[in-house]
């Protein structure tokens, strides 16, 4: 069974998904960060494939992307770094990134490689829903990759239902109209949006992302969905860290237990 599917079957609450950019802060930190996150207790890990023009991302993640590319990171190298990961790490892994580097790698070759190294799912924010359905869905399924779509407070109910129908892992619920890391905390208005989505009886679980940065916002998000996603706040920790393993573990602990 796909590790993401398994996770959501076994755990219904307080699921913590942590994002980091591959190749940041140093080119070969990818496995070190993955391992520390796993040991620290992250339930799901989202590895960002750096891109030169990440339009959905705020400053923190942009800079990590730029630094990673300057370090020499590429999709090809990421697969190299991950080739033995399943010998030591069992946490579900998602690759997140913009569509162009994936297109240049070749969709089918990319999916095949994902399966080989043990990636469980993908988040490609600029892959259109209709293109996914018409061209990519069957390829993703062939290689047992779950695709994750985003919804926002502006996404219509009709579209949310459609996305729910074609999703089979979880739905990434963007907490507010923003780029990553632009806002912090969760307002009443956002809670009303979460409540609306919760009342829709979707078949897929939801994780809330954007604006989650500490224990308080994590708990608040988790009470409105099955868990939450942290990106920018973690990148800031990586950026300032002098001892990755120790700082990563204490970050995960601080999010889960305050």
């Amino acid at each position: 069974m796909n590790r993401i599917t398994q996770l959501f079957q076994n755990k219904k609450q307080d699921i913590l998904n942590v994002y980091f950019t591959a190749g940041f802060p140093d080119l070969n930190d990818t496995v070190k960060i993955l391992t520390a996150l796993d040991e620290g207790g992250a339930d799901l890990i989202e590895i960002g494939m750096p891109y030169s023009d990440p339009v959905a991302d705020g400053e923190t993640i942009q800079l990590s992307n730029q630094k990673a590319l300057d370090n020499g990171m590429s999709v090809k190298l990421l697969f190299e770094q991950l080739k033995d990961i399943r010998k030591t790490v069992n946490v579900p892994i998602l690759l997140m990134g913009y569509i162009n580097p994936v297109l240049q790698y070749g969709i089918e070759a990319f999916c095949k490689k994902c399966q080989e190294v043990g990636v469980d799912g993908l988040i490609l924010p600029d892959l259109p829903v209709d293109v996914y359905e018409e061209e990519y869905k069957s390829i993703f399924e062939q290689y047992n990759l779950l695709n994750t779509f985003l919804i926002t407070p502006q996404t219509s109910d009709v579209r949310i239902n459609h996305i729910d129908n074609i999703s089979n892992g979880f739905i990434y619920m963007v907490s507010s109209a923003s780029t990553t890391g632009a806002k912090t905390g969760i307002s009443e208005e956002q809670e009303a949006y979460f409540a609306k989505v919760n009342a829709m009886n979707l078949k897929n679980p939801r994780l809330i992302g954007f604006g989650i940065s500490n224990h308080e916002s994590f708990k608040k998000a988790s009470s409105n969905a099955q868990g939450a996603i942290i990106g920018s706040a973690f990148i800031k920790v990586l950026n300032e860290s002098t001892n990755l393993e120790k700082d990563i573990k204490s970050f995960v602990h601080s999010i889960k237990y305050a």
């Binding site: 600029d126 892959l127 259109p128 985003l150 963007v174």
Partner: peptide, 12 residues
């Protein structure tokens, strides 16, 4: 062509 945009831009 097409519209390869993140969901945040889709409604607009």
């Amino acid at each position: 062509g097409g519209a390869f945009i993140p969901e945040m831009l889709f409604p607009n």
